[in-house]
Amino acid sequence: MSIQKAFLFLLAVAIALGALVADAPEATAQPATAQPAAGQPVQLHVVPSDGPRGGVTVNPTIDPDRNLHGDRVESHGKGMALLFWVFAAASIGGALFVVTRRNLIAAVMGMVGSFLGIAAVYMMLYAHFLAVVQMLVYAGAIMVLFVFVIMILNRPEDEPVAPTGHVGQVVGGIAILYLLFRLGMLLAHVHVPASAQLAPPPMQLPGGEVADWGTVKAVGSDLFSGGLFPFEAISILLLISVVGAIAIAKPLKDDDGEDADLGEDLATAASGAPHTDGGHA
């Protein structure tokens, strides 16, 4: 159990360190309001992005100096870089923990660490609301569900990897690394529109209000205008999963009109062996 404790401890230290460093560049970035930080490409004059859909539109008339949160620059500066690397390491380390641990509880803990790191990365992408949802729903609810099931099964140890030959493992590993390399090269050189280098401007909501990008207000406004149908339709999906999960996992009773094990062997059925049809009164 010491490994995951150490891991959690490291994660906590990392978060604390990150929080400390985060203060510093923000203070220095504050006076240089409209100025992008050093190392920024020069083609920054195009500010408004080209028209997102729906009722939520970027209003080019909004004063660019208007500053709700004080974060003028996108994730530039050494503090942000350090934060990014810390949380990236947390999420990747947690993910590796999941796929390598024999102990299921350890895997779940790695998963929680990974999800917290991912939530922090969402914050850097200005997805504040999604970051909170990620923590509440994923790291909170779903992982607790996993822990419950692991406790029900009560068999934490498990053989770790599929027993394929060494050749298979090597070939598979090379294939996966190659895939990662190609995907990584593609994504690292993605063409970014110039307007996307700045912090996202505040948005004009239908009611005339202004909200910061990615906040509950802005996301909610989109959710209840363009995203209304999926938002409603997902309730059907949740109903299926609730009803279905109960129907599948409720305890077996002898008097619920179900027969005993009917998974009879086909071979015996074929050879004309007398079959048992339990429970047909």
Binding site: R53, L130, W213, G214, V219, D222, G226
Partner: peptide, 12 residues
């Protein structure tokens, strides 16, 4: 979503 300045992906 951040790159395109389009919030609909947050809903997604």
């Amino acid at each position: 979503s951040r790159m395109w300045g389009d919030l609909s992906a947050h809903t997604f």
